[in-house]
């Protein structure tokens, strides 16, 4: 399951990074502004938004329109006092917040794909960096809601009801997995070795020599 989480995070971040890399940086900045603004609004006005939606729902489902039109014989106060199950539970708003957030993400992506932001023939490194931040934000909030037990990514703006109050500090690699244990052992041995710097520098040199010689031969 944890491997799946890592794959999801990597995929989301890569997706947004590639978008930022292919489009000019403006697209990624617009997406970032929309994402952070929507989160700030959810943080400040989330409960009020839920109350309004629930109230509207009650109004429509309780026959509020008929009461307004005056043909149902029911007064407006009666319509608003009808027992109607609210569509959003104010005590568990995480799913609603996430769906609202995804809607903003979709809008942001659509705005980012408008003509002025499209690829102008040059890749953008700053677009890549901002895209990575966008991807991180989307991944962190998605995991906080969908997989709260794995919510190890810190979020920039905590939203009450959406993000955990005290996120887990980190999850160790499963100790039973032999490959992971061996990898850790290998990294530990290499890191503790006094010749680690020669090994790393040697690997870099060998790679550069092979890459330049073999690629040139193919060309």
């Amino acid at each position: 399951m944890f491997t799946f989480i890592i794959v999801v995070v990597a995929a989301v971040m890569t997706f947004f990074a590639v978008i930022g890399f292919l489009r000019v940086v403006r697209a990624s900045v617009i997406i970032l502004i929309l994402l952070t603004t929507s989160l700030a609004l959810l943080q400040a006005f989330g409960p009020r938004l839920i109350a309004i939606i629930n109230r509207l729902w009650q109004f429509f489902m309780g026959g509020g329109l008929n009461a307004l039109a005056g043909d149902g014989g029911r007064s407006l106060s009666e319509a608003l006092s009808q027992p109607v199950k609210p569509p959003i539970d104010p005590n568990a708003p995480a799913t609603f917040y996430l769906l609202t957030f995804y809607f903003i993400v979709l809008v942001a992506l659509l705005i980012g794909s408008l003509k002025p932001f499209l690829l102008s023939g040059r890749f953008s490194f700053t677009g890549l960096l901002v895209g990575l931040i966008n991807g991180y934000i989307v991944a962190a909030y998605s995991i906080a809601v969908l997989f709260p037990e794995f919510a190890v990514l810190p979020v920039p703006l905590p939203v009450k009801g959406m993000t955990p109050a005290t996120p887990p500090q980190g999850l160790p690699l499963p100790g039973t997995e032999i490959v992971a244990a061996r990898l850790l052992q290998f990294l530990d041995n290499l890191g503790s070795s006094p010749s680690a710097h020669f090994v790393v520098a040697g690997l870099i040199i060998v790679f550069i020599v092979l890459a330049t010689r073999l690629s040139a031969r193919k060309g």
Partner: peptide, 15 residues
């Protein structure tokens, strides 16, 4: 694996 590793491994893959 914690948040730092996840993020930096992803950045590495993106590069």
């Amino acid at each position: 694996m914690g948040p730092v590793e996840i993020v930096f491994v992803t950045v590495w893959i993106v590069f």
